[in-house]
Design a protein around this nucleic acid. Structure first.
Lengths: 248, 248
DNA sequence: ACAAAAGTGTTAGGCCTACACCCATGA
DNA sequence: TCATGGGTGTAGGCCTAACACTTTTGT
């Protein structure tokens, strides 16, 4: 990890004496890491991102996305999931690659390229755990100083999320099992950073057909008690895989 | 490039004797390459892809995307552009990253991760050149056996292109300066693999406002001589950067 | 003369947007 | 009692999709 000197026999011998790992290549190789931008949502904080506090230099005590060095026996997606589990105790079903960041000096130690993923999860699924003492949610409009170029990675992740939302339903991953129309609307509004008309939003969502009313709303109560919905999982998955087009 | 043995002092010494490059790392590092999927278009062949014939093992004499190993002093985009220039003599203004392929055994030599880009170019811009003797265009429905996992990379590139086409105008990059409405329609049809109604397509494109009629069409000729268009570059760039939504 | 290529306009249906009022709750 | 939150329906405009005939050219 520390040596990459060309034809330096002294470094080589020192290295061997110290019994460190010795991986030799004829040409220089960058290190490759993965990073996961994990989005969560609740009514209180709106859209939030899961960050971990770095315990080691560089950027010690800075917040960063969960992630780490890729192993030789795993592909990027597996590596990202492994690191995520190790650092936040979170096991997601689906993470999605959205870019690869390769600027020359993005890591002060050596040349590091990172493959970046994002995922949508329920905040309640992050239980924390042994290694995950320092994983915390931050609302999207109150993000601390981030390590490396993670602020840029976050911006790209947000842009990707905004684009994706037009093509696939979201919500199942972010909302509790049962939710109300205003909650769903707030979720869309906080991701897209716009405001919608209540009536239009509700009509549109209902027409799409992956929502189902749940529970009984007292007949008399035609008022301030919101209707409760949950997702029709078959329809939802169908839209998710086939894709759809959602106009706003 | 060939050695990556852990704590193997013999390999080390041999390596040094041979005066090869010696890059030592404490942990194993994958090699990182870039690949470019270059799309071109003409009326005769429809949508085509630019491939180069490999001169070296592995996959010698197989066709592959232009690309190669990333240098330590360049980011992925620069590296991809450099390799593209070296191998096809093509200097594109804009390439766009669409994914990173990291399966463990995608290259038989060693662990190689590739960062993939695509671009749209005019076929006439590819002049060939010294190093580029073996670069050729292949129509999208007649692609030869490809090296490595490049068939998968191509599928992902095509999917990305199809998605992008809904959000940004294409054509300026692929069509000649002056073109006809049927040509533009064929372009869209061959990328999206669908057929459109002539009248609707033409109405829609005209309404968008980045086409301008060019030349004089003889007043009498209200028939088989097509109207010629070119792109209004300001409008076109505006749409390109702001994005738009094109329904089909 | 006939086939192929290109031009042109209308209609019906669906979706988007904008907009106002009522009711119940809780402070 | 008043402010807040939530539910509900309609009308106009725009876009989409479907559709047929005419002209000219080239063979």
């Amino acid at each position: 990890m520390y040596y990459s000197k060309k034809n330096n026999i002294f470094a080589l011998i020192l290295h061997t004496i110290l019994m460190k790992g010795t991986y030799i290549y004829e040409y220089p190789h960058p290190a490759v890491t993965t990073d996961c931008v994990i989005f969560g949502y609740d009514t209180k904080d709106g859209l939030s991102v899961l960050l971990v506090k770095r315990g080691l230099e560089p950027y010690k005590d800075c917040w960063a996305f969960p992630g780490g060095f890729l192993r030789m026996d795993e592909d990027a997606e597996s590596g990202a999931k492994r690191e995520l589990k190790e650092e936040t105790n979170l096991e997601t079903i689906h993470i999605e690659q959205f870019g690869c960041f390769s600027e020359v000096n993005r890591d002060p130690r050596e040349r590091v390229i990172t493959i970046a993923f994002y995922a949508l999860v329920k905040k309640s699924d992050v239980k924390g755990g042994d290694d995950a003492a320092d994983a915390h949610w931050f609302p999207i409009d109150n993000i601390p100083q981030l390590a490396f170029d993670h602020d840029r990675i976050l911006r790209v992740a947000l842009k990707t999320l905004k684009e994706k939302i037009h093509f696939m339903p979201i919500g199942f991953e972010l909302l509790p099992e049962v939710f109300t129309m205003p909650q769903l609307q707030e979720l869309y509004e906080s991701i897209l950073e716009v405001k919608f008309d209540r009536r239009n939003f509700s009509n549109k969502m209902n027409k799409l057909g992956f929502l189902k009313e749940v529970g009984e709303r007292p007949d008399n109560a035609g008022s301030r008690i919101p209707v409760k919905y949950s997702f029709n999982k078959e329809k939802y998955s169908e839209f998710k895989s086939k894709g759809f087009r959602l106009e706003f």
